[in-house]
Design a protein around this nucleic acid. Sequence first.
RNA 1: GCCAGAAUAGCUCAGGGGUAGAGCAACUCUCUCGUAAAGAGUAGGUCGUCGGUUCGAUUCCGACUUUUGGCUCCA
Length: 583
Amino acid sequence: MAEKLSADEKLKLMRHSMAHVMAEAVLEMFPTAQIAIGPAIDNGFYYDFELPRQLVAEDLETVTEKMKEIIKSDRTFVRTEVSREEAREKFKDQKYKLELLDSIPEDETVTLYSQGIFTDLCRGPHVESTKQLRTDSFKLMSIAGAYWRGKETNPMLTRIYATAWENKKDLRLYIEKLADIEKRDHRRLGKELDLFSMHEEAGPGLVYWHPKGARIRQVIEDFWRSEHYKNGYEMVYTPHVGKSWLWETSGHLDFYHDGMYPPMVMDKADYYAKPMNCPFHIMIYNNSKHSYKELPFRWAELGTVYRYEKAGALHGLLRVRGFTQDDAHLFVTPEQMDEEILKVLKFSLKMLHSFGFQEIKAYLSTRPEKAVGELAKWDAATEALRKAIEAEGLDYDVDEGGGAFYGPKIDLKIKDAIGRQWQLSTVQFDFNLPERFNMTFTDRDGLEKRPYMIHRALLGSIERFFGVLLEHYAGAFPAWLAPEQVKIIPVGDNCFDYCKELEDKLRMEDFRVSADVSSDHMKVKIKNAQKDKVPYMLVVGEKEMESGEFSVRLRTGKQQQWGDYDAFVKKLHSIVNSHQIEL
RNA sequence: GCCAGAAUAGCUCAGGGGUAGAGCAACUCUCUCGUAAAGAGUAGGUCGUCGGUUCGAUUCCGACUUUUGGCUCCA
């Protein structure tokens, strides 16, 4: 403990020590409790217990009080090295600790940490005394179930999550951050802004896009398509269902059967809703023989797929059972691989930047133990990915052995407005499907060869991307994405006609605009437009009708003078076309 | 799927063994207004579904559905 610790390390030490204090408090309440593990985590700590009864919210208050007493009582954390036998004796009634003990490597010293009457099997280190902990900078957050050692077949333990900080102020800031996260929750915003819904009667995890949500989606998709054409892609459309032959051949029925919707029986054949688009694109490829001169093929599709996600895993738009992948498959010759990978990565970055994500990190996943495909191909593909990342100067991590069994991949994660990471793009080699579907092209030497197949999605899934975008902007979309860009607000009903004409003119300019000619008061109209987060409001009264000049009210509350109608239109076109984030 | 919560008007929520209430939204009327809430009135609910306990259940109990926070999973 002599060496200087960084602030992060100190916080971690404190959190971990807190976890011990919580375990002691829980043991005081339930002397027969079995204690499992209690590490420090990002925002605090948790501890897993097996308890004689279920916990209720009030129990957390009791535990909190007991923890405060323990902290105040200034107990020293004492470290002791013990033999395995001593440890075994000490924890003879703690089955999880005994299991942990068995998993400590033979050559490692077994250490115990005690404060007061509580002793835990622990590598440490800890603070010197509970005095160094604070009673006012932690909060028990929630009770959750967690499998022992994270394995589904193991017993379910009770986990208490807590957040802990260096001081009261940091705790307060964290609680405020949570409130901000809640405010930008896409499920909440989706309801408030009337963008989408899901329906108990109609099936969980299936999304209904309301007009305003659909409008935004349409803008995203139009942009997506036009960028794809610019980047040398072709669009394809494929069916939503396919006979079992397709999924037997692809291997999906073997590997992912549990994740597929059950079959529909028709004309004595089983049809499955598609969980992926790839086999369909391969059908198009295999429809005719191909020469090396035709490659590369870049075929894209906004393909809607259905996957059975476990009921407990569903989460708003971020985890659904039916979603649309912004999918594409590249079929390339070995010679084209490097260039195509670089191109697709550049394209991906361009796309993410266009939506306002600037901070992007790459994750390269390499060959796992169990894999299909020749080693040389894996190496070549992995190198192509790595070279592309480095050529783009991206910050990246390597997940050794983290690739799928069928190929290496790059995932791109963006950082949103409040610093959270989301994985969006993925670029994945596939050495499995070309074999299974016996895909070939005729090379210049007249021999039939396998093309490289690359699966990629830039936004991931439209639903998920939309959810992330919604949270990133907290519902206040930049003008080019906003479902409604301009709200015209008449001061009185004598300007209704003028406002409606203005609305028509702006609509002809391709703006999403409406005039609020309801009987509400002007202030109410502004309030409503504000609540809908419409970026621009034109308040129009006698003054404007006479002068022909508008003052633009931004959704931020600021007023701007953009000049007359023509100036307004020009300015707005430029903002929309450039995908400008600021208003 | 597993653990623990939740489900009351379109939305946000209060209530509680004797069949329900607020604010906002909606609708009607009045006000015609200069940059975030004008006034009055009306209507709106099998209290998620199905069972059980009870003279009586929206309230208590159970199952189911959906949902929230976790765990697991995520081609």
